[in-house]
Design a protein around this nucleic acid. Structure first.
Length: 855
RNA sequence: GCGAAAGUGGCGGAAUUGGCAGACGCACCAGACUUAGGAUCUGGCGGGUAAAACCGUGGGGGUUCGAGUCCCCCCUUUCGCACCA
């Protein structure tokens, strides 16, 4: 509207932009938030659907009470994918739940005097409200809350099944104890000798009776099936492979020379290089090896030295660098007999031998092992060469290799009757020999140990076991499940399992003999809860079974699982184990729970992980209040590719807000919801300005669609949409002059909204309505691009001379090589660059570039 | 020590298959509109030069008509593993 048409402008304060063109995120988001609230089944997965299914899952959070930006990023990725799949016609399962057992609730009870259940439920309510406000499309009818008896009774049920199959057992052993958690930890929960929740707290070793799950029965399968997980990040697979730590080798028994103590008369040694056994010049024991106790029982001087070694090992573990420890050892004065050659070799105790790997004893072969070499040098032990490098030339006499010679390919010497054999061959034959003579065998060891699940804490699933004086350990009968976690108990006292102080809980009756029995008072590790929760989503209300097998067959495996890499070992290996056990129980058919895994990067602020103690926490609530949920979501997707770490910048989100404002304004200005032509086909012949818009539109649809299918670089998707919007703004003049046909203008706006829908659902819904569209945008069909329309008619070809850019020519896209080269040579700057020189070669890369090589 | 990933303007990042390095955004600069601008729009924005030339993807070498991209060596950062016998 021309300025002279509004004479009152001098007196009235008037924004340049009418209010209805300004994007008010709060107004729009509140409006849709309220509408979405009213439809509880909006995001429900269909049961008995004939559609193709898509199960997209984000790792369920611990209900700490507040979402952080890492959550927002995780869920924004999943939500975009879920919405994209809905728009592509899939039956999408996109659930959410709460990993709601665990220590923080108990600690809150102690510090704030709020019962754990109350504290937890309050937090869940807060976080759920935040999730809803962020517009995440979850099927809340399937919500799983692990601290509810409806859920944890199935933990107990599974435990009984595991127990029946011999996969749950009780044993006394050294276990990891965190003094701050005042409970036991699984091996997976110990990081560099410290508690995974308390970086500053050293884990102690305690001897306790504990329940274990026999994950080691599945070591091999867990390892083998990693190869099937081709859509998992290589990094995670490597971490799991390392954790399982499979190692092939040979067990060899060395007889103890002289009198034996209670620990026995032989020392079993594990080695991967039995081919070097003729070079063994000592046996080295871990300081905590049981035989060491025998050997030192009459020698207090030696005992003191061994204790010193134990202390050194502990200290090194505490510092977290057992690898750096100075090698130390003491001779015991006793000898062991090498069963291969009958040789007597000295027994030492050394601080670099670990009790928890292999057998806690090794044969020391200084000539062929770096550590043994270092040790032997230090203590002047014999170094005997028994393997030579393979020579390529059989005539050549092989020189002695530099020591230690650790290559795995070699030829045995000094090892009659095995001399002359190659190492690999020798290992097989010598293992067989040991087995035949009863002093050893080929074997496989794993680093993976059974999963200790007992926790001496209150806020967890009670382990459904009883102790009867007469019948011993008795499982709670299935019909008596769930064993309810008592409420209103005082968890503030310390020392022992809190449940042990609740007589009503502890004292019960033995189901076998009717006599008095005591309940198990430990609770389960919370990783039990998260090992199978995603199965429960498929049938969350089932009170007859954990789930329905047929429904699982439809939904599993999970198509896309998204979460932080910090669970690469813990949660993800336990989940795989649980799946395999459930399969063997006949409950499910799939071998693996997760088809595709995506690990998103961390969200940092000022270069560091956000944490309350650092005071660098960016609050999603504050971002929503300032910029709106769409902006916050779009920004976390735009600022970096999702697999990379993202450093939060407040100015960045402002740019996103501006962009959404531009989109909004464009549609407000150009929407023609009741124009009769808006649904008509776009004419085949278009003026150049219109054709440019059409071309850009189809290019953008292609780019965004391709990224969803492929590499998930949502940052570039969003860039592409920004480019489209920039083109539209560039065409504003053409639009006001009516050069852009209405069908095209309507189509480009519809598609723009559709492209934005997975990322910025609030704005997209608002604009969808503004465009006069009646159908639900959530399931509106994803736009298709036309490759022909996306193609440029004319392209600009850069022309290089000797690889340097000298000019450009504009040619029709389908020009022949001949034509392009002719035009290139005719270019002024190019002609100047080759003047007086001889053309050696002319290269034309179709549609890309020309390079003229001259001399 | 072993393994993996990464290193590109002032910043986040793009360049998907060996083919115009710096898309898109932030910051900054200029202009327009304005009583005003922390709104909006338009333009500029690797270094260098009057303009060119020229130089630029951690460093060095190589392959190629052509290298951010492939190969070799080295440096740095992050992550994982770490006396695993």
């Amino acid at each position: 509207m021309p300025a002279q048409d509004k004479p009152e402008a001098t007196t009235v304060t008037r924004p340049d932009r009418p209010d209805d063109e300004r994007y008010d995120a709060q107004r729009v988001e509140t409006k849709w938030f309220e509408r979405w609230q009213q439809d509880a089944s909006l995001y429900s997965a269909e049961s008995d659907s004939t559609k193709k299914k898509y199960y997209v899952l984000e790792m369920l959070p611990y209900p700490s009470g507040v979402l952080h930006m890492g959550h927002v990023r995780n869920y924004a990725i999943g939500d975009a994918l879920a919405r994209y799949m809905w728009m592509n016609g899939y039956n999408v399962l996109h659930p959410m739940g709460w990993d709601s057992f665990g220590l923080p609730a108990e600690n809150a009870a102690i510090s704030a005097n709020v019962p754990p259940r109350e504290w937890t439920l309050r937090n869940i309510a807060k976080m759920k409200a935040q999730m809803k406000r962020l517009g995440f499309a979850y099927d809340w009818s399937r919500e799983v809350t692990t601290c509810f008896p409806e859920y944890y009774r199935w933990n107990q049920w599974f435990f009984l099944k595991f127990h029946e199959k011999g996969l749950a057992y009780r044993k006394k052993s050294k276990v990891n104890w965190c003094p701050k958690c005042t409970t036991v930890l699984a091996n997976e929960q110990v990081v560099n000798g410290r508690c995974w929740r308390h970086e500053d707290t050293l884990v102690e070793q305690r001897e306790l009776e504990q329940w274990f799950l026999r994950i080691t029965n599945y070591s091999d399968e867990l390892l083998r099936d990693l190869d099937k997980l081709e859509h998992w990040p290589e990094k995670v697979r490597i971490m799991q492979r390392n954790w399982i730590g499979r190692s092939e080798g040979t067990l060899v028994d060395f007889k103890l020379d002289g009198p034996a103590g209670p620990a026995g008369a032989k020392i079993s040694v594990f080695t991967t290089r039995v081919d070097t056994i003729y070079g063994a010049t000592s046996v080295q024991l871990a300081p905590e090896h049981p035989i060491v106790a025998d050997l030192t029982s009459t020698n207090s001087d030696l005992r003191a030295k061994v204790d010193q070694l134990i202390a050194e090992q502990r200290k090194a573990k505490e510092i977290g660098d057992i690898g750096e420890i100075e090698k130390h050892g003491v001779p015991t004065g006793r000898y062991a007999i090498n069963p291969f050659n009958g040789e007597k070799i000295p027994i030492w105790v050394a601080n670099y031998i670990l009790m928890d790997y292999g057998t806690g004893a090794i044969m020391s072969v200084p000539a062929h092992d770096e550590r043994d070499y270092e040790f032997a040098k230090k203590y002047r032990l014999e170094i005997r060469l028994v393997v030579l490098p393979i020579s390529n030339d059989p005539e050549e006499t092989v020189a002695e290799p530099p020591l230690p010679f650790v290559a795995h390919e070699g030829v045995l010497i000094n090892s009659v009757p095995f001399s002359g054999l190659g190492s690999a061959d020798a290992i097989k034959k010598m293992s067989a020999h040991a087995e035949k003579h009863g002093f050893g065998k080929a074997t496989v060891t794993y680093r993976l140990k059974d999963w200790g699940i007992s926790r001496q804490r209150y806020w967890g699933t009670p382990i459904p076991m009883l102790y009867c004086e007469k019948d011993g350990i008795v499982p709670v009968p299935e019909k008596d499940l769930p064993v309810i976690l008592p409420e209103n108990i005082d968890v503030t006292l310390t020392g022992g399992s809190p449940l042990g102080r609740v007589p009503e809980f502890v004292n019960t009756m033995c189901p076998r003999c009717g006599g008095p029995a005591r309940r198990e008072t430990d609770t389960m590790d919370t990783f039990v809860d998260s090992s199978w929760y995603f199965y429960r989503y498929t049938d969350a209300g089932n009170d007859q079974a954990p789930f329905d097998s047929k429904t699982i067959a439809y939904w599993f495996p999970i198509d896309q699982y998204i979460g932080g890499v910090e669970h690469a070992i813990l949660h993800l290996i336990y989940s795989r184990f649980w799946t395999k056990v459930m399969r063997d129980l006949g409950l499910i058919k799939n071998d693996e729970p997760v088809g595709r895994l995506f690990t998103q990067g961390m969200v940092t602020y000022q270069g560091a992980a956000m944490s309350k103690s650092r005071g660098n926490v960016v609050s999603p609530d504050e971002m929503i209040a300032r910029y709106g949920a769409d902006s916050a979501r779009l920004y976390v997707l735009f600022a970096a590719p999702p697999d990379r770490d993202l450093d939060w910048k407040d100015t960045g989100i402002e740019g996103i807000q501006r962009f959404l404002g531009r989109v909004y304004r464009f549609v407000v200005r150009n929407a023609q919801p009741s124009h009769p032509d808006r649904r008509r086909p776009v004419p085949a012949e278009l003026p150049p300005a219109a054709r440019a818009i059409q071309r850009k539109l189809h290019q953008t649809i292609k780019r965004v669609s391709d990224d969803f299918q492929g590499r998930w670089h949502f940052n570039t998707c969003i860039s592409a949409i920004m480019e489209l919007v920039n083109v539209l703004y560039g065409a504003e003049e053409a639009i006001t002059q009516n050069t852009i046909p209405t069908p095209l203008l309507a189509e480009v706006q519809r598609n723009l909204v559709l492209l934005l829908a997975p990322f910025a659902p609030y704005l997209a819904h608002e604009l969808w309505e503004m465009l006069g569209e009646k159908g639900n945008l959530l399931k509106a069909p994803w736009p298709k691009y036309d490759a022909v329309l996306a193609k440029e008619e004319e392209i600009e070809i850069p022309v290089q001379v000797n690889g340097k850019l000298r000019g450009r020519v504009i040619v029709p896209a389908d020009s022949a090589e001949e034509f392009v080269l002719t035009r290139a040579l005719r270019d002024e700057k190019v002609a100047a660059a080759i003047a007086g020189k001889q053309i050696m070669k002319k290269i034309y890369v179709p549609g890309k570039l020309v390079n003229i090589v001259v001399k």
